[in-house]
């Protein structure tokens, strides 16, 4: 992921993150061009969620830097500030919708508070984004507790897109969903990425989803990226760690304690 003639949309350099002296991520490097989609796979506890939280600025880095269009966003001392975070859209694993607001208000939130739109303009934009993901105006008056997990993720996708981010980060978008809903979410994500030329980083351990969403796939193991390539090569690689993970073998170099 390094043959770039022009400035990459997203560049992660020498990223390191630890919690209580335990190193979670180290020496993570990659860069992505505008409109490209990277899927990061890896087992539970490999540091996937921490990685995209570091990229989005939710966690401050111990070392390294994040650049968007050549501009350094995060440094060692601080996480990103509010303006910097507008570069990133973040779709949470559990959707993280605001449960005191209805679906329209949830989607309008970013437009109202991050983009400083008027109430009416934010609501109109929310309805537009909801229609983009196939949610009707009538349904928009429901609350997050009234809808299924799959629909919550659809709403979270619409909310993520309202602030017009340059980079979208998806934290296990299909985890906990049935195969049909997983395909629907993946289709919507692809549709949004392509129609708006978004750069996307998705973390998942759902191999079908990884194959559908990624232009490239990388594997995170023990806090560092150990392999990257095109999705087609994922099942052809000689890397034993990748082979074990993608084929779901219990025996192999990855032990359960990892």
């Amino acid at each position: 992921m390094s043959d770039f003639k022009e400035t990459p949309r997203l560049k992660v350099t020498d990223l390191k993150k630890s919690f209580s002296n335990k190193v979670i991520l180290h020496n993570v490097n990659f860069q992505l061009s505008k409109g490209s989609s990277l899927v990061i796979i890896g087992g539970s506890g490999s540091g996937k969620s921490v990685l995209i939280k570091c990229i989005s600025g939710l966690y401050a880095l111990d070392q390294g830097q994040i650049e968007v269009d050549g501009k350094i966003l995060t440094s060692r001392r601080n996480g990103a500030d509010a303006m910097q975070r507008r570069n990133f859209g973040f779709m949470f694993q559990n959707a993280a919708l605001f449960d005191s607001m209805n679906l329209i208000e949830n989607v309008a939130f970013g437009a109202k508070h991050a983009l400083r739109m008027t109430h009416k303009a934010a609501r109109n934009l929310a309805l537009e984004k909801l229609s983009l993901v196939g949610i009707s105006r009538r349904m928009g008056n429901l609350y997050p507790s009234d809808i299924s997990t799959g629909l919550r993720k659809v709403i979270a996708l619409a909310r993520t897109l309202t602030i017009d981010p340059q980079v979208v980060l998806f934290d296990e978008p299909t985890t906990g969903l049935d195969p049909l809903m997983s395909k629907k979410i993946d289709k919507l994500i692809l549709q949004c990425i392509r129609s708006q030329s978004l750069t996307a980083v998705t973390i998942t351990h759902d191999m079908s989803s990884a194959m559908r969403l990624g232009d490239r796939v990388a594997m995170l193991y023990n806090g560092t990226l150990i392999w990257s390539g095109k999705p087609d090569n994922l099942f052809k690689t000689d890397n034993e760690l990748v082979r074990q993970f993608t084929n779901g073998y219990v025996d192999g170099p990855i032990s359960f304690k990892d």
């Binding site: 939280k53 989005s56 600025g57 939710l58 509010a82 303006m83 975070r85 507008r86 990133f88 859209g89 973040f90 949470f92 694993q93 559990n94 993280a96 919708l97 605001f98 449960d99 939130f109 970013g110 508070h113 991050a114 909310r159 993520t160 602030i163």
Partner: peptide, 18 residues
């Protein structure tokens, strides 16, 4: 617990102010 505070941050909203 439900990551709504993190969601506020990703929508460029300071939880202390909001």
């Amino acid at each position: 617990v439900t990551e709504q505070i993190d969601a506020l941050k990703t929508l460029a909203t300071d939880p202390f102010k909001y």
